[in-house]
Design a protein around this nucleic acid. Sequence first.
DNA 1: CTCGGCCACCTTATCGTTTAGCCAACGGCG
DNA 2: CGCCGTTGGCTAAACGATAAGGTGGCCGAG
Lengths: 338, 338
Amino acid sequence: MSTIRDVARLAGVSTATVSATLSGTAFVSEPLRARVREAVEELDYSPHGVARSLKSGSTRLIGLVIPDVTNPFFTEFVHAFGALARGDGYSMLLGVTGFDAAREREAIALLRMQRVDGIIACPGANADPYNESFAIGSRPAVVLVDNVPVGVNVDSVVLDNYAAAFVATTYLLDRGHVRVATVTGPSVSLPGRERIRGFQAALAARGIPFDPRYVVSGNFLEEDSRRALGDLLSLDPRPSAIFAAGNLMLVGVMRGLHEAGLSVPTDISVAAVDDFPWATAFRPALTTVCQPVAAMAEHAMRLLRARIAGDVSPPTRIELSASLVIRDSVAGLPQAAF
Amino acid sequence: MSTIRDVARLAGVSTATVSATLSGTAFVSEPLRARVREAVEELDYSPHGVARSLKSGSTRLIGLVIPDVTNPFFTEFVHAFGALARGDGYSMLLGVTGFDAAREREAIALLRMQRVDGIIACPGANADPYNESFAIGSRPAVVLVDNVPVGVNVDSVVLDNYAAAFVATTYLLDRGHVRVATVTGPSVSLPGRERIRGFQAALAARGIPFDPRYVVSGNFLEEDSRRALGDLLSLDPRPSAIFAAGNLMLVGVMRGLHEAGLSVPTDISVAAVDDFPWATAFRPALTTVCQPVAAMAEHAMRLLRARIAGDVSPPTRIELSASLVIRDSVAGLPQAAF
DNA sequence: CTCGGCCACCTTATCGTTTAGCCAACGGCG
DNA sequence: CGCCGTTGGCTAAACGATAAGGTGGCCGAG
């Protein structure tokens, strides 16, 4: 692999001239520029990014930390954010933590060592990996997305989870359902907490008494949700509608319902927060509340850019609202059901 | 941010001693090691990975280049490969190219500049970005996965696409179907080419004449496939079974069939290569041929490790076989249909 | 005619590590 | 008692690029 000195030698100029030609930071006469370009071509020279980073103090690297790539929400986020990062000339370092605090800590430590310019993190649940070394002025800059542990004081971009759950639940109530149950995520996580809160608030707004047996935890996981659904179905009276507080939990619920021989929406209605690409591939197509993933990525990138540029103003919290996508998984109940 | 010199000063030792303590490359007496550790703790010192890479000549970075994260095959591959890379102490730089040769070239150039230790690439179609600068001895090491453009002479890991298509098609024939059509990918890509070949070979093995009208291109894309399906359905006689040569194309076919009011498998049967997580969520659950994604990732990592370590033996081509997963989207035809 | 300024380029210190090479002290052995 | 190998740590030279500062040559102005 050839260095800038080889190029300089071949072109008969100094390394500074090569550097200036390549980066355009200083004026270089046309003949020299031509010779430099020729030498670069000849040697197939590629600047040593590592050396450049060391000297310049910027790696043009952004770390993206997520719990699970295969979860459609995060897949979509990687997709959206990747495009934005590329557009800004950043490369993306992907860390997958599997909802494990230790791995999260490791990932963060590694990114710190790599001297990435910024980190976008979607915390699993625990605040542990974050509350220590993250503050507004510190490097690398951090923006939290989706889940924000309590006590972590940096920029964040989240869904208005409360409203999302409220809207979904209210839609079920509007269609005449009264016995509405929910499969929720763990309440240590912000979305888990807020979505339960939104669910309960929607019931309360209609004066429907809250029955704790109608709330089971699916841990944001498909398999756990399928199991938890069993408890719900064995209840008497059985719920006529289920609100799933996350996409994977929705899939688990649908699977469990199918196994139980119940058909949607004839026997039981289903709605959820978190849309995903193949919600329309299900039969019936699933009614969900859709997160504005692209907008979340854009806000995250914008906040991060500002921090990287040196902004030290107090943390911003961006809360985006979701939109209800009505499909075919919720049936209307006759008024008699009231 | 504190440097190794700060640590050395605080601990009252030389930088070499700090380095030796941290990396364990040389023996350091217990008292000094303790003082070093203490100083590291005190200063919250994190080694400067960039400087380390510059000096050591290794970045512990692997670039992963894929056309599309949201395609379940690649999502799964990112997931599997990410875990392996992490296990080997590598970080993963993700580049998404959108099947665009120019972006592919850019991604490769960027990774070369970043001086990644190795690259795992899933080429979109074209050989352009690869055939130039990639050869066995060159850096970074490269392993191609999924699609291998002709004329590129490096290690590769691919599915036995021919056999996969053959198996899926033969399954349809076994169930009594004769008018079997296919929605294929572009034949510039290896999987596209080979899967058509396998499809045709399966027909030929049964002495069924090949009708070119029964082959339409879905470009590996959902939307294109949905449209292409229209041509197939307007044929007379209409095919009784469809072989989709990729997961997204399968989804497009299912969507198109649903829109046309055709029910699967009663009116028409469907099989495909490329399994995906929610193939079981469809009604009916989809019969597919499943790629051994985890094994592919393992082989790719193994080959790459060897090349990084300096192996210069001739390129290896690993071809893994797929397995038929029988679900509910294929109906048996009465013998009368023969 | 001379001098200052600017243009176009070169020289060189620097980023933070690693590591080869060096040195002092110490102990064993002839 | 002197020699030498070993042990444990230090000094300093890279790694490859950037950019601050330096240097001729040339031109215009006084």
